[in-house]
């Protein structure tokens, strides 16, 4: 495995204002390095700041303090239009709620991140078909999200995340809306695809069975990251 740092977080803090000027630190002074090709999983309870951390890494949100260096680029200082380029070229997102476009077919959903790029249409379609095949959805390419099962929808979302060959794949509760069997299948696919395509993966989840697929496990609580995972996390989940 290469030792090049793909993600470097330094003293990263995200603060939200909540009513009566009270402040909530969703991410509190987090520093972290993720090397190229690594599959990192962050476990933690709801409201611990996992999604916020993922959004900061992916350039969907801006930190209140600290820096995010993604593939050598300090994205905490970029403008919105520069962040669009980062999200388009370097990041692939998978959301808990699938977040597919309801009027797009499975194939079109996978193609969506490529639409604003200069890639020719036939190449875009070829790439999307290839990814759907990888996800075992070749026969479902023309189906709308509403015609797919939850597991199939999440597989489409994963295919979409891989479409632009991102440097980093960010999985936000990828199995949250799935049963254990489908969840494991999804993680297996993510793990296999990331290894085949050479992506660095950061996943945040409740699902402790993810440890089978991950290279590194961290725990998050109250906006802080810990390397020790409390035993009760596994006991509760399993």
């Amino acid at each position: 495995m290469s030792t090049k740092n793909v993600i470097e977080l330094s003293n990263l803090t995200k603060t939200y204002q909540r009513g009566n000027a009270s402040e909530v630190k969703a991410v509190d002074d987090v520093s972290l390095k993720v090397v190229d090709g690594e599959f990192l999983t962050i476990l933690g309870p709801s409201g611990s700041g996992k999604t916020t951390l993922l959004n900061l890494i992916g350039g969907l949100d801006k930190p209140s303090e600290g820096t995010v260096i993604l593939d050598g680029l300090d994205i905490s200082k970029l403008t919105e239009s520069e962040l669009v380029k980062v999200r388009r070229e370097k990041v692939g997102f998978v959301f808990q709620a699938f977040n597919l476009i309801p009027t797009f077919s499975a194939l079109e959903n996978v193609e969506a991140p490529l639409a604003p790029t200069k890639m020719p249409k036939n190449e875009r379609i070829e790439r999307s078909q290839e990814l759907l095949w990888l996800m075992g959805l070749k026969q479902r390419a023309d189906h709308l999200p509403a015609e797919l099962s939850a597991g199939e929808q999440q597989r489409v979302a994963i295919a979409r995340a891989f479409a632009n060959k991102p440097t980093v794949l960010l999985l936000d509760e990828p199995t949250g809306n799935l049963d254990t069997k489908s969840g494991k299948k999804i993680l297996e696919l993510c793990h296999r695809a990331s290894k085949e395509q050479g992506q660095t993966v950061v996943a945040v989840t409740h699902a402790t069975y993810i440890r089978r697929y991950t290279d590194c496990l961290l725990f998050m609580r109250d906006g802080k990251l810990f390397s020790q995972i409390p035993q009760e996390e596994f006991e509760e989940a399993e």
């Binding site: 992916g58 969907l60 239009s81 669009v84 999200r87 388009r88 070229e89 997102f93 959301f95 977040n99 597919l100 476009i101 969506a112 991140p113 639409a115 604003p116 790029t117 979409r160 632009n164």
Partner: peptide
């Protein structure tokens, strides 16, 4: 979602 996946 479109913005998150790279639409400007």
């Amino acid at each position: 979602i479109l913005k998150a996946i790279g639409w400007s």
